[in-house]
Design a protein around this nucleic acid. Structure first.
Lengths: 357, 357
DNA sequence: ATTTTTAACGTGTGCGCACACGAAAATAAC
DNA sequence: GTTATTTTCGTGTGCGCACACGTTAAAAAT
């Protein structure tokens, strides 16, 4: 790796001048700049990021705001771990990551958390834009303060966010449908179980459902898809009632589609369906889902690499702040198909990075 | 992040002394060492890897030896790209990665390449142990020279390699069987197409076949699996002959299992099977396979994240050399199920690292 | 032609760490 | 008590880069 000093010697100038050329700083005559640029290219000069980080010694604070998790809803555990991992590694680069959790069901806590967030004077923000109206207000503030921000997991449009890190939900629903079709025969019925879409109609779950339905429509398949809506997934009786009240002229339900991360609950409910247990397709490798999959109660899980998403949101923003590396507008994680047979043993923390500890 | 200098001030000693304690170097009285250790722990001191790499300025050469690739067999392209990517990033850390390609079918070129490799005086080696007997000799040399080495893609046993980076091939074959079963009805027949296992019987492909067969055996399924062996996959006539000469009393072949990366060729051959095209399951996202999958000629591809594997082999070895970070004996990449619907657009280079360019 | 301004470039320092070297203190040898 | 030896510790330099500052040369103003 050739150094600035060496380049300087080759060009008969001082390191400072080479530095100016590299960073397009003023104060260099076009003639010598040209010469230096040629030498740089000739020797394929690349800045030593290590030395650069050390010299820059910039101090950045990245604030991350995401829903909390509990025993009931574990989805956000994994992204948070990815965020922490990236934070650890970014530390050496002078980046301080602070996280703020809010209640997924409370717009007030969403806004309140944002207030706390602002107090840390972040130079960059990662946001899970759970509430549409409130998000508009918050991003307005960020834009005024010229704080760059990126959206994680939920792709809200028209907010001037730097980028979106998440999954193509429509596509994943479409994929679920494909898998479902592979399992079923031509005339088997399908059941889609979802809860009241309490947030916005642009959210991931409704996109999954749309993708799912689109597959069957596009391929002109004639399987009937019964959609039921349940508020409390744990209410087994309600679930049973809904099922039995479906139109009687239908065929047998051979497949169940659960477009959220709580397929394991439905798995429990259908355990006592007798010997004709239907195929079950759900989302996200939470601990509960993972267990149900391992027990054979769930056929497929579709995973969106939440750890990786958390990691990428922070690492991407870090790179942007440190090196002005532009981010691609959409960072979509691969859509993974998980079965009992390829379920990863541990958590998916397969993201090993160099300067890690 | 607290620095050595700050710790030194707190302990009323010089930075040099703190440095000695951190690295367990001699020359510090036990009394002061104790005191410093306490302060280190109290402030949760972590060395700044960035500054460390810069100061260390170690020079390591990592030599990688793997099969070449061509239009015909593109499998090794992706690992090589992963290796290059890791090499680029490791460069700032003073690591120089050199790659050597050999002919997959020629033990001689294998040994010859190794000769060239040795001339670079590497401090670490990544090896794809394609030939069993020769590998024993080569690793013997490495052991004598005390050069640590790791195996990539092929898990040869009993060679004192630092670790193995690759896939659990048995498991991936098992998974293929599961997917196959989901597609088929109870009495459908299966065709397994493989080429002469020219290398060793411990290789990945035979493991895949074993895993595949084990699934059906373990679940006591009664689908018949016809196995045919073809030397030249491109020979359509031979393929057709083999098919037609299968026992007539069998049921219809509804699924084809190709345990290598050339399913796309079989896909071509079965195109003119008429309207009853069977399900096809193959391995690895090469360009050809990818196209065949997109065209709907292949049902499933099972991928082993070859880019990631290449990347991890080099990054893992780098960490080991730089920081003595121990490596886990087996680094198994996730087994991915790829369908037309979740096929990644570009190459799978989703491994973004911090100090990258 | 002299001064003032500006453009063009060189120099020096520090980021946090590793390590060589040398100084001081403690101990041993006599 | 003096010298020799060893232990214990401090100092200084450099890794490659960014950037502030100072210096020189060129251009502009007078």
């Amino acid at each position: 790796m050739i150094t600035i000093k060496e380049i300087a010697k080759l060009a008969n100038v001082s390191p400072g001048t080479v530095d100016r050329v590299i960073h397009n700083r003023p104060g260099v005559s076009e003639k010598t700049a040209q010469r230096i640029r040629e030498i740089l290219k000739e020797h394929d000069f690349k800045v030593n990021r290590i030395a650069q980080s050390l010299a820059l010694k910039k101090k950045f604070t990245i604030a991350v705001m995401l829903p909390g998790y509990d025993e009931e809803n574990q989805f956000w555990k994994s992204p948070l771990e990815g965020i922490h991992k990236a934070g650890e590694e970014a530390m050496s680069f002078g980046i301080d990551v602070k996280t703020f959790a809010f209640d997924q069901k409370s717009p007030k806590s969403y806004v309140d958390s944002f207030g706390l967030l602002l107090k840390t004077n972040p130079q960059g923000v990662v946001l899970v834009p759970t509430f549409k109206k409130e998000t508009k207000e918050l991003t307005q503030i960020l834009l005024e303060k010229e704080i760059p921000f990126i959206f994680l997991n939920i792709a809200l449009e028209g907010h001037d966010n730097l980028c979106f890190v998440g999954q193509d939900s429509f596509k994943s629903g479409y994929l679920a449908a494909k898998l479902m079709q592979l399992c079923l025969n031509e005339n088997d019925d399908i059941l889609t179980v979802h809860s009241r879409s309490n947030l916005s109609n642009v959210n991931n779950i409704s996109k999954r459902i749309k993708g799912f339905e689109h597959y069957f429509k596009a391929l002109k398949l004639k399987n009937t898809n019964h959609k039921i809506e349940i508020e409390d997934f744990w209410d087994a009786k309600k679930f049973r009632d809904k099922i039995t009240s479906l139109p009687q002229e239908g065929n047998e339900i051979k497949g169940i589609f659960v477009p959220n991360s709580r397929a394991h609950i439905i798995a429990k409910h259908i355990e006592d369906f007798g010997n004709k247990i239907p195929y079950l397709i759900g989302f996200d490798i939470t601990e509960h889902n993972s267990n149900a999959l391992a027990d054979g109660k769930i056929t497929f899980l579709i995973s969106q690499k939440p750890f990786q998403q958390g990691y990428q949101s922070v690492s991407g923003l870090s790179k942007f702040l440190l090196y002005n590396t532009p981010l691609q507008p959409d960072i979509l994680s691969p859509i993974e198909i998980i079965t009992k047979e390829n379920l990863p043993n541990g958590q998916q923390k397969d993201y090993t990075i160099f300067p890690s500890l």
